[in-house]
C-alpha cells in the first residue's frame, strides 16, 4: 500500500525513464548529428549540382557533350566493364575456396585479399609504374612487341582492378561461410555435377550478396582517382577517365564543366546508394555485409 502511494506521488517529468535520455538530451544529440551530417555530407552534394548548373542547363549539356568529356565517359565505362567482371570471377572463386573448404593459412589468405584496401591509392598506381615503367624489365620488353601498358588503357585497367580487388570477395566470403556446405552436399549426392551444383544451388543462394558486391565494386571502379591518375599519363581524349577529366577541367578554371562531369559521378554515387539501400532493406538476410557497409 505504502509503495503504491509513493509511486503515485512520483512526479513523472523529473524522473527520466531509466534506460534512455531526457527529451532535451535527445534533441541536442539528434541536432548535433544532423548538423554534422548536413555540413559534411549534404552540403558537398548540393554544391556539386548547383555549381554544375550555374551557367544554365544549355551550358551543362554542352559541357557534357564536349568530345574529350564524351571519350572520358566512354573510357570509364570500358574500364569498369573489364575490371568488374574480372574481380567478380575472382571473388566467386576465392569465396568458394575459402568458404567451402578447410585448409591451413586461410585467415592469412583473407588478410592478403583485403590488402588493397589498406594501401594508398597513389601507391596502388605506383606499383604498376615500377612494374611496367622505363626502369623495369617488363615494360621495355612489352614495348618491343608494341604493347603499351603504362600511360595507356591496360595500365588504367590494372590499377582499377587493384583498388577494387577485395569488394566482391569480402562480400561473398562471410555470406558463403554462413551458408555452409549442406545444400551443395545434398545436390552432389543427388547426382548433380560440380558445375550444376554451383549454377543451380550456390549461385541462387548468393545472388543478392553478389549483386551487392558488384554494385560497390562498380562505384569504386568508375570513381577511382588516385591510382588511375598515377598510371594514366593524362592524355586528353585517350587516357582520361571521368574523375581525371574533372581534375583537368578544374585546373583549367573551367569550373562549371568540371562540376558538370562531377555531377554525373555524384548521380552514380546516389544511384549506388539507392540500390544498395533497397538490397539491404529487401534482401538483408541474404547479404552478409548489410550491416557493415
Amino acid at each position: 500500500m505504502v509503495l503504491e502511494v509513493s509511486f503515485a506521488h512520483q512526479p513523472a517529468a523529473s524522473q527520466p525513464a531509466p534506460i534512455t535520455e531526457t527529451p532535451v538530451v535527445r534533441i541536442v544529440l539528434i541536432s548535433a548529428a544532423l548538423a554534422f551530417l548536413a555540413f559534411f555530407l549534404v552540403l558537398p552534394l548540393i554544391v556539386v549540382f548547383v555549381e554544375a548548373l550555374r551557367n544554365g542547363f544549355d551550358a551543362y549539356r554542352s559541357a557534357l557533350t564536349e568530345p574529350d568529356t564524351v571519350s572520358a565517359i566512354r573510357l570509364t565505362l570500358l574500364v569498369a566493364a573489364i575490371a568488374v567482371p574480372l574481380n567478380l570471377v575472382f571473388g566467386v572463386a576465392a569465396a568458394w575456396a575459402i568458404a567451402k573448404f578447410e585448409f591451413k593459412g586461410k585467415a592469412f589468405l583473407i588478410t592478403l585479399i583485403d590488402l588493397p584496401f589498406s594501401v594508398s591509392p597513389v601507391i596502388s598506381g605506383l606499383v604498376y609504374v615500377l612494374l611496367f615503367g622505363a626502369g623495369s624489365v617488363l615494360g621495355p620488353w612489352l614495348k618491343s612487341y608494341g604493347i603499351e601498358v603504362l600511360f595507356a588503357v591496360p595500365g588504367i585497367v590494372l590499377a582499377t582492378i587493384f583498388v577494387t580487388f577485395p569488394f566482391v570477395a569480402r562480400e561473398l566470403i562471410p555470406l558463403m561461410q554462413d551458408q555452409g556446405t549442406g545444400d551443395e552436399e545434398a545436390a552432389l549426392s543427388l547426382g548433380a555435377s560440380g558445375w550444376q551444383t554451383f549454377r543451380l544451388v550456390t549461385l541462387p543462394n548468393i545472388r543478392w550478396g553478389l549483386l551487392y558486391g558488384v554494385l560497390l565494386c562498380n562505384a569504386r571502379a568508375m570513381g577511382e582517382f588516385g591510382a588511375v591518375s598515377v598510371v594514366s599519363g593524362h592524355v586528353r581524349g585517350l587516357t582520361n577517365t571521368m574523375p581525371l577529366q574533372v581534375e583537368i577541367l578544374y585546373n583549367e578554371y573551367n569550373f562549371a564543366a568540371s562540376f558538370a562531369v562531377a555531377s554525373l559521378l555524384a548521380l552514380l554515387a546516389l544511384l549506388t546508394l539507392g540500390l544498395k539501400s533497397i538490397l539491404e532493406f529487401r534482401y538483408g538476410d541474404h547479404i552478409a555485409g548489410a550491416s557493415k557497409h
Binding site: 562531377a262 544498395k276 557497409h293
Partner: peptide, 19 residues
Amino acid sequence: IDAMVDLPFALPTAVAGIA
C-alpha cells in the same frame, strides 16, 4: 540519413575534393 552515411564510400574522391 542512415543511407547517406555511406556517401563518402560511393562518391568519387575527386568530386568530394572539388565540392
